[in-house]
Amino acid sequence: MYNLNGNVALITGVSHEKGIGAAICHKLASNGADIFFSHWGSDSNWVKEFEGRIREYGVRCGSLEIDLADPGTPVNILEAVTAEMGLPAILVNNAAHSFRDGYMNLDAKTLDDHYAVNMRATFLLSVEFARRFRQTPIPAGRIINLTSGQALGPMPGELAYAATKGAISAFTLSLSVELAPLGITVNAVNPGPTDTGWMNEVIKKEILPKFPFGRIGMPEDAARLVAFLASEEAEWITGQVLNSEGGFLRG
């Protein structure tokens, strides 16, 4: 257990119960953090029920339906969370846009759609978070980005996704140096192949032998690492991309 009491955590891309974003909300709330999450296209009944489950940890919980592809989202979402709960000390950029392409199908719209969410929203939300953070007495801040291990192996058929998610790793390293004097750490987590509901039985059977632990990655695996990076214990870790894949074997 990490003591996150009194910290407000903003998590993007929490759209369904089986996702990594939902697992992160549960984990941070269980450690005492107040939770504010963004979602897009989710069932409104599920959102209300999910907020209720998070509040059962004894923390506050709020949410906002907002399109991260809108350039104005970074300011709007921070205005919303600050008005309801106060300025967040923890930012988890979990939202992602993913659509298969390949060289025969890649076009400008596909690139732009991936760029808008995976790069622009992540980058602008991070810097807006930092600008506001420097004006408050909060002693330490955490930015945690989710990436997908693009540096570890090719992702054929996902050129736009691989390129835009890979850019997050470079951004993480450079931003971490700029924000260290403010007491903000900036890290990225690569959870590897994770069963968030998208895997059918054929895919599971194919990739299971590549996990030496004998099981496929679960959202809770990523959530535990995010909770650590959000804690005081991780104050000396910044500018890192942590590959938390359970020893996943490529090739």
Score class of each variant (00 low, 15 high):
101 D>R: 08
96 A>L: 08
127 V>W: 04
105 N>E: 13
133 F>G: 05
135 Q>D: 11
82 T>N: 12
88 P>N: 05
103 Y>A: 07
129 F>S: 05
83 A>M: 06
93 N>L: 05
129 F>I: 02
90 I>N: 03
136 T>Y: 00
125 L>Q: 10
117 V>R: 04
113 D>T: 15
113 D>A: 15
105 N>I: 13
92 V>A: 07
99 F>L: 14
134 R>Q: 15
121 A>T: 10
131 R>V: 02
90 I>C: 07
134 R>D: 11
119 M>S: 06
86 G>W: 05
96 A>Y: 02
91 L>A: 08
114 H>D: 12
99 F>T: 04
119 M>K: 00
90 I>V: 12
83 A>P: 00
127 V>M: 09
82 T>D: 14
81 V>M: 06
135 Q>K: 13
120 R>I: 11
102 G>L: 09
129 F>W: 01
97 H>G: 00
134 R>K: 15
91 L>Q: 09
87 L>P: 00
107 D>A: 04
90 I>E: 01
106 L>F: 12
124 L>Q: 13
118 N>E: 08
104 M>T: 07
90 I>G: 02
125 L>H: 01
129 F>D: 01
115 Y>G: 00
89 A>E: 09
83 A>H: 02
85 M>Q: 11
89 A>H: 01
125 L>I: 14
113 D>P: 13
107 D>I: 07
108 A>P: 04
95 A>R: 10
85 M>D: 00
136 T>N: 00
97 H>C: 02
95 A>T: 11
102 G>S: 15
113 D>H: 13
137 P>G: 07
105 N>S: 14
118 N>A: 07
114 H>M: 12
128 E>P: 00
127 V>E: 10
124 L>Y: 15
115 Y>M: 02
111 L>P: 01
82 T>Y: 09
123 F>K: 03
95 A>C: 06
89 A>G: 14
83 A>S: 12
128 E>D: 02
86 G>C: 09
86 G>P: 01
82 T>H: 12
114 H>R: 04
99 F>N: 13
124 L>T: 06
112 D>R: 07
110 T>G: 15
84 E>D: 14
124 L>K: 02
96 A>S: 12
83 A>Q: 09
107 D>G: 06
105 N>G: 05
111 L>A: 05
109 K>I: 09
120 R>T: 14
92 V>W: 06
